[in-house]
Amino acid sequence: MIATPPWLHGEIAIGSLAAGKHVLCEPPMATDARACEEMISVAQKNQRILHIGYQQQYDPSNWAAYRNIMKQGLLGDVYTVEATHHTNSSARLESPSSDAKFDPRPWGYSSLEHLLNWRLYQQYSSGPMGDEGGSIVSTINWFLDAVPTSVQAMGGIYSYKDGRDVDDHVYATLDYPNARTAMLSVIQSNGFEGSYIQILGTKGTLILGNGESLLFMEERNGVTSVSTAAVSGSQPVLDASATRRAEGADHSALAQGAAATGGVREAFQNEIAAFCGAIRTGAPLRCSLSDARNVVLTCLAINKALKSQERVRPQEFA
């Protein structure tokens, strides 16, 4: 399992695959397209499993929303997707004084500050688009069953002029086939809306959250909540009582027979289980290498668009 800064993903994955190991690699797949192609090629040549850990596809609540809402066409025609990853944090780590004498140069980092804060420097990471932005792009691609044909972007280092060279604010527009557009903002100056993806269709709106999806149908008021649960026969699934009013609804107090299963932790566990299952039985994994590579191409295109202020096609990087 590779959980290093992204600039090392390609080198470690290729070496591991060539040594006959199956590889589960944290996203992004790599920081450039060439490394992605080589990783795929070495995995195929050595007949080893290479999987990029976009765990959103292993979140049961996301999967339930995809299968039960998106694939069933409940949203009608979708033209617009809005997505955010908003935080109010510099993401900067301070080095403990006890490590002051540590020399990270043999490992490719010019200083301890660079080693700790690799997310803030382009030479080690792809910036916010490779990191949180990439996960969002991966999920949008999955739900729209498509990859962007072109992107536009603006942004910059607005809040944290602390020596970093990656942007702390990125606003990107992604054009998908069939007149579909996704608007994505990754900012570090306000955490109000947190992280979500909102898919807007002619019949309804789907909001993907952490462990629960919300569905708003255009024709009527109110919201339908969709989540998942591991239902056990041995434990009560629900507890009967006198009527519990809507605002006081509480599934959790006693009943353990339908434990909620969505969320990040569950997604990670499922992903690792699926990776092991794929090694054991050859079962297909949910996010293909082609999908993971397409996310990298999109993020490279957004990063280029940020600099050029022009519309950029991800396929330029293929």
Partner: peptide, 22 residues
């Protein structure tokens, strides 16, 4: 391979309470 145990839980407010289906 472990069989999916993910039951889908759908709920909505109506009649001043929560209607739920698993």
């Amino acid at each position: 391979m472990p069989r999916s145990s993910e039951w889908t839980r759908v709920s909505r407010s109506a009649m001043a309470c929560q209607f739920e289906a698993i």
